[in-house]
Amino acid sequence: MSQSSLPSRRNMLFGAAAVSATALLTSCTSNENNDDPEPDTQAQVSDEKPGKQVTIGFAGPQADHGWLNAINDNARKRAGTYKDVKLEITEGSNDAAAQDGQIQTLIDKKVDVLVILPADGKAMTQAGLKAMQAGIPVINLDRIFDSPQAYRTWIGGDNYGMGLNAARYIGEALKDKANATVVELAGIDNLELTRQRTQGFDDGLKNYPNIKKVARQAAEFTVESGQRKMTDLLQAQPKFDALWNHDDDQGDGALQAIKQAGREGFLMVGGAGSKNAMDNIKADNSVLKATVLYPPTMAASAIDLARALGQGKGVGGLAEFEIPASLTLFSAVVDKTNVDQYMPTGFK
């Protein structure tokens, strides 16, 4: 997930959620109106009339997390829907030097467009600049480069919006409860995304003066860290009314800790939109009642944008001839009322 400051949240909120964003982007032409495959049928070939052949290079970090693995899957599946797209995908690395070498290989292959989810946005800025200077437009995915000269378009999630919408959901659920308390299970504290999610959550809670955040623990986006840090929270806080967890992978561990402690009587809101989280929300047999999306379908949308760039098209539904400079996806809240709609976007 994003490791660098994202563009202002005043940027375009592109669609109501990942599903609608992907649906609009698929018709990446300002002159045609084509239906988009449903999220669970992305592997099917698009029935849109093929255009100019486009070779897209895709470079992402190592898929050592459920969300990152879903990023790669979404890119592959989306590319597979187009007869006029060839995808050159790298192995993926969390080492900036190794990823830089992979990107240089794609530049040397003279791909038409590059989609890059950098292992580290700041460290990989030069790689983006090299591609742009070589005449290869770059779609910067999620973790933003330090310089706008390093990319043609940025697309990613809204970390501040995740925290804000989590606070709103919890706030509405507890607005009639006097002296309500919440705790926060954050992500990795040295990441900008974690600070943004916490800031959004804190700002959202200001609209509910009856609710006070009484504790916060930072985990590491893993099941093990989630279980360990949630155990610490439970021991330190014998009673609270709600929990905001930044990441559904670490949320699996948090749920294990909650079950082992025999704790209930509070609601939990997760983050990112994993399949496990959505299954739990649908079953409605645990404290987990909602999750706030950070949609990995952004990778599918990045392929759509790359194809449009390679073919000189705009985006269907927009009047402009060019694709936008940045797209911020909306952090939709998924609960039992709409979980069936979003289930196809859940990642393992």
Rank of each mutant, 00 (worst) to 15 (best):
E192Y: 05
Q235T: 04
N207C: 13
L233E: 01
V183M: 14
F221E: 04
E192G: 03
K213V: 07
Y208E: 04
D189I: 10
G187E: 06
F201I: 09
N190L: 00
T198G: 11
G204H: 01
Q217P: 11
A218V: 02
K212A: 02
Q237P: 09
G187I: 02
L185F: 10
G204C: 01
D241A: 03
E184V: 15
I188T: 04
D241K: 03
F221I: 03
E224L: 01
K212N: 15
V183E: 07
Y208V: 07
A218P: 08
P238K: 06
A215G: 14
G187L: 01
T194L: 05
Q227N: 14
T231Q: 13
S225V: 08
V183I: 15
V223Q: 14
Q237W: 01
N210S: 05
G204I: 10
G200P: 08
L185G: 00
L205K: 09
T222N: 04
D202E: 12
K212Y: 08
A219W: 08
K213G: 02
D189G: 13
N190M: 12
K212H: 08
G204V: 04
E224C: 07
Q227M: 14
L233G: 11
F221C: 05
T194P: 03
Q235C: 10
I211S: 13
V223S: 01
T222M: 03
T198R: 10
E220H: 09
L234E: 10
K212M: 02
A186R: 01
N210I: 06
Y208F: 02
K212S: 15
V214M: 14
F221A: 11
E184F: 14
A215I: 15
R195G: 04
P209D: 08
I211V: 03
D232P: 05
G200V: 05
V182Y: 10
G200N: 07
D232W: 12
L193C: 10
